[in-house]
């Protein structure tokens, strides 16, 4: 019962943050701020939806240890770790490429990188 409630909460939180991330991608003014929304919010949301899956696997595992639910849980955790790592790195790569291409951060109060590049 508690587990079911926890799964519901995880799913709701995950969906909320995924939705916020996508809305952020649509709303923010330039590449860097969009990357903020994309990387943080969608990764966090995906972690929570996957957490729901792991919780589900744990619950079923206690009911029926023969059902190979540990495979589900372990592979899900692995997928999430890979996802978080790759997302962070690709966000860095995109931001650097955008800056090298000369996209200025919109509404910026300071830009130290450009000052040193000159």
């Amino acid at each position: 019962m508690i587990l079911s409630a926890l799964i519901w909460i995880s799913l709701a939180v995950g969906l909320t943050f995924n939705a916020l991330g996508v809305i952020g991608i649509l709303r923010f003014p330039d590449v860097y701020t969009r990357l903020h929304a994309d990387t943080k919010a969608t990764t966090f949301g995906s972690i929570f939806t996957s957490l729901a899956v792991v919780l589900y696997a744990a619950g079923e595992f206690f009911k029926d240890p023969e059902g190979q639910y540990e495979t589900l849980a372990l592979h899900t955790v692995l997928a999430v770790v890979v996802l978080a790592f790759t997302n962070a790195t690709s966000a860095h790569a995109i931001a650097r490429a955008a800056h090298k291409r000369g996209h200025k951060p919109a509404q910026a109060v300071c830009d130290r990188l450009e000052e040193t590049a000159k």
């Binding site: 995924n18 996508v22 969009r34 990357l35 969608t42 949301g45 995906s46 997302n87 995109i94």
Partner: peptide
């Protein structure tokens, strides 16, 4: 670059 950001978001959502 904006398009790549969208691609990245789609990628994450597909995995989830």
């Amino acid at each position: 670059a904006d398009r790549v950001v969208a691609l990245d978001a789609i990628n994450t959502l597909v995995v989830a």
